[in-house]
Design a protein around this nucleic acid. Structure first.
Lengths: 225, 225
DNA sequence: GTCTATACAACGATAGAC
DNA sequence: GTCTATCGTTGTATAGAC
């Protein structure tokens, strides 16, 4: 799939999931009109991630958030019960869309080499479309309270396990030549992470997400074939 | 070099650099007895990094730091002029020791393949000995004010340039087969970073720093030879 | 050198007017 | 539904006792 096509798919998923959140949290969200909630929630999420990525979630005050989102401090509290909970729903939304799109992509390929390419390419495209969320998630996870922390780590390990499974299947079919599938998956994931962690570097060097995807796929292939 | 031997070397450098900091900052450090300053500075640095890595530098209050280091809030201000400055001297100390030990190691190898192995192994050993500092530096850099931010980025690019130079020299001597030295260096660095960013994962899998170094060296070699 | 006490600003959260 | 006003708490930093 090209990146352009992927982008449209992801955007639709985001609004959908915002609507799901509204329906699942009738206790915290005190506003009743759906169109208003979806619109303001999207604004609040984007503003939160923007400010958090600039100064950190903890350092972002709700007064800052009010200014950035155009809502008053008091009004914000109609959309979430506490600053802590705001974080939880942002994390839930992001994890849900990542899992959904990654599953779709990997399942559509059959052979290990294609599956490996699919997981690498899709993860990179995902982290390009949702770079602010990926960055936010990576940087803030360590501050999460136990429950939220564990969900975040579990999501990460699940992604890694997906790669391990593909590598082991490929080894069993004698497509890949690998001694240590876990470490191989680990360094592959490190390369994927670098795309959203060091975006300034790749921008500066004018590397597109498609360039980078091609390179990583070729690099991993030459190491394990 | 084995990790055990490397560790001793690094420890000596740390105290040395603490002494250098004392001599270079007579304005901020109001205490005059060297042995006291070196002792308390080391305590303050370690406590700062420990607390910051747990809750973030910004969220760490100086009351917390006083409790952790065993000094009163007022007393801390005899060792640095502001919280901001505390961060600066910690960064300076870390960067200095990294640059010193990395230079030593890379310069002692002659052939590109040995140099590549040296930079990978030394960086991993360094980030094992100084894991808290590396983690701190990676996580906090984005909050630094302009001057400090630029120094941090420059240090990072310098490390990456070291790898690029080795790869290009190896390509010129037809030892390595590489299309894109910059991207190759970039993903190599991503693998090095993962060692100090995801330590919990490697601990859980009982991977030692020597295991990981051997693996990364072999993985990169198979991709570029 | 190290302590306690305190000044002043900014935080998350809530109540009640509009 | 959104606003302003305000509560109690906690932050950095300093002054002056010991």
């Amino acid at each position: 799939m090209t990146f352009a096509k992927f982008k449209k798919l992801a955007m639709i998923s985001m609004e959908d999931i915002c609507r799901e959140i509204f329906n699942e949290n009738p206790d915290s969200i005190r506003i009743k009109k759906e169109h208003l909630v979806v619109k303001n929630l999207m604004t609040i999420f984007n503003a939160t991630i923007k400010l958090s990525n600039a100064k950190g979630f903890h350092a972002m005050s709700l007064r800052d958030l009010g200014r950035e989102s155009g809502l008053s401090l008091g009004c914000l509290y109609n959309y979430f019960a506490s600053k802590e909970e705001l974080l939880t729903i942002i994390q839930d939304q992001g994890r849900r869309i990542v899992a959904r799109l990654l599953d779709q992509s990997v399942d559509s390929a059959m052979h290990p080499k294609d599956k490996l390419e699919a997981v690498i390419r899709t993860h990179l495209y995902l982290s390009e479309v949702m770079q602010p969320w990926f960055f936010f998630s990576f940087m803030e996870t360590r501050y999460f309270k136990k429950r939220e922390y564990e969900k975040s780590i579990a999501g990460e390990l699940k992604t890694e396990q997906r790669i391990i499974d593909i590598l082991e299947a490929g080894r069993a079919q004698q497509v890949f030549n690998i001694d240590q599938p876990m470490l191989t998956a680990s360094v592959t994931k490190a390369m994927l992470q670098d795309w959203y962690l060091k975006r300034w570097k790749f921008r500066r060097q004018k590397i597109t997400v498609e360039n980078y995807a091609d390179f990583v796929i070729q690099f991993v292939d030459s190491a394990i074939m």
